[in-house]
Design a protein around this nucleic acid. Sequence first.
DNA 1: TATAAACCTGTTAACGATAACTTAAATTTT
DNA 2: AAAATTTAAGTTATCGTTAACAGGTTTATA
Lengths: 353, 353
Amino acid sequence: MIAKKKKSTTLNDIATAAGVTPMTVSRVVNQNGYVSDGTRDKVLQAIKEMKYRPNGLARSLKLRRTQTVGLVLGDIANPFAAELARAVREVTMLRGYNLFISVSEHSAKEDIAAFDSLAAHLVDGLIVATRSNRAGDKHLSEMIEHGFRVVCIGRDFHHENADWVSADNRKGGFEATQHLIDCGHTKIGFIGTNLSGGASLKRFQGYLDALKENNLEVEERFITGSPEASDEAPGYSTEKLGYEAMKRLLALPNRPTAIFARNDFTAIGAMSAIKEAGLRIPHDLAIVGFDDIPMAVHTSPSLTTVRQPTRRQGSIAAEFLLKRIEAAEQPEREEKVLECELIVRDSTVAAGK
Amino acid sequence: MIAKKKKSTTLNDIATAAGVTPMTVSRVVNQNGYVSDGTRDKVLQAIKEMKYRPNGLARSLKLRRTQTVGLVLGDIANPFAAELARAVREVTMLRGYNLFISVSEHSAKEDIAAFDSLAAHLVDGLIVATRSNRAGDKHLSEMIEHGFRVVCIGRDFHHENADWVSADNRKGGFEATQHLIDCGHTKIGFIGTNLSGGASLKRFQGYLDALKENNLEVEERFITGSPEASDEAPGYSTEKLGYEAMKRLLALPNRPTAIFARNDFTAIGAMSAIKEAGLRIPHDLAIVGFDDIPMAVHTSPSLTTVRQPTRRQGSIAAEFLLKRIEAAEQPEREEKVLECELIVRDSTVAAGK
DNA sequence: TATAAACCTGTTAACGATAACTTAAATTTT
DNA sequence: AAAATTTAAGTTATCGTTAACAGGTTTATA
């Protein structure tokens, strides 16, 4: 049995108390229309005494807008997501929109649940930063075609009525790999997907591109890690996957001398395995991660990684969305790809060199 | 100018299309009441064709409940908050409630804005995990007295109609300090507040208790860091505060030989300062943090810290809230204090000992 | 002074959905 | 076969708010 909420005071109650009509109270509350000073005071007084707080639901229902935007995040524990949320929030707040964050731990079902619950609450628009999946994409398409405003960050989903922001993961992957090649490595492993399942993983594609461009052979046995696992598992636990993958690579005859990991957590897990095996980083094995999470500076040795412009992705996405929301007509689709930056630290180049 | 949303299909539209009344459609959608198979099919068909999606706002307005709970977090980038959100979400999802997260970067104004925006959307209840502040507390009180359901985590706010969950920060602080004393330290500094402003910081109180119990003198000059700064600044930037505070302590004549930092970020910042000064941890200076963030294992040396049972705090808070929401009458206030656990690593006890 | 413009407040009808009630047919029970 | 019950819809009113319009009154302008 659900408790009935104590019936809260409404516009009507205030109106009665102040001896005016609800409409007048509404005008006072929203500070529009004409209200005489005397009436305003009376109403304000009643509002204070009766502790009235407007029912946003009713208001939104009437206005057909909520001044709220939704952000769907895959893994809230991932510093990347957190930073994104910060940036989005900064922009939306400034422009007078509330932000509701909904988390979907990377399953299609939860994705859809998150979309629907935000849509049901009629957020004015949605920023989606979860990974692509069939059912979720379809759902998104339908929502967009219904006039729902959507901006995607990083998600491999494209629609002519939705804007899109992403880091150039492919190029980032390329540069990470190229860096290892420049350091003299020729046997470079990849942790985080496998050859057949990595088609959609841009970072991995960049890795392949770099090998090809340098006429290095792609060795399937150097590529390990199930394609989904790293995404399904929440942030910090991908560390374990990195650890296990590295174990496999270490057991290989004629093993790689350098590793590119799909993200920093994976890389850090791999580092544990390397150290556990009594090998030195970067002398015996060099390693590059991706994302430049705050932890990357503090590992030992510090982790070379690819930094993506997280804040900018967030704020640009927010700008796109607000523009879309406030536009009279659905505007042209906007797309922005941002450059990544290779951050060289001690895990690829020995300190002091 | 705000774009008018393409008028979306409503119950009425479906009703017209299917040749029935809105009520019948409602019955089909909500699967209650009697509907014949034939009618149901017709309606279902129309729903599918016209891509109807229920307006949750209207529904909630009528039902006076939203099946949604709100979580107010101080700093989304803080792993503690992230873990909390995870745990809360797990419970609420399982019980059929959506979770909306709102972030308030620890200012009273934003706190209140977050409360209000969630309240305006009529979430069925609120879990508040931000730090206490005068205006926010007052606002919370009013909301509770209006029948709003609230559970606090860690926040130093008490109300007879709101449940409360927290880690035993005082005891945790005590144990951290006692550990340093057990290691032979007598000159123990604290980073994160000052003597006058630390009354509300339980961890600091625990530190004082431990000194007292061991008949060690409290040296005001060993206690540094402004009381609010660490909270106002978002997570990762408190690192800087720790760094600066440590610099000050290092400059002291007859400086401390051990440090207890109010949280791990602060501790990590302090470690940077110590290493930069060419001192060894723990030989020249031992250090203890608080929270056991994932990074703590990976610092060099690894960080001794106090772990709080984050997940349990989140899930217990969620349980309390749902119980409160679903109770016929406001239930008795519940309160739960959870034990912390000292995790000894290399920053206090040299590795291999 | 006549007339336009600005000011103040009220009335009505929604926004989209549903609870509670009603009517009427189809089943079941006695 | 009559009464009781179940099934299947429809009707009405309402959740709390606001846009749009309509009257009045006061002030400014020609």
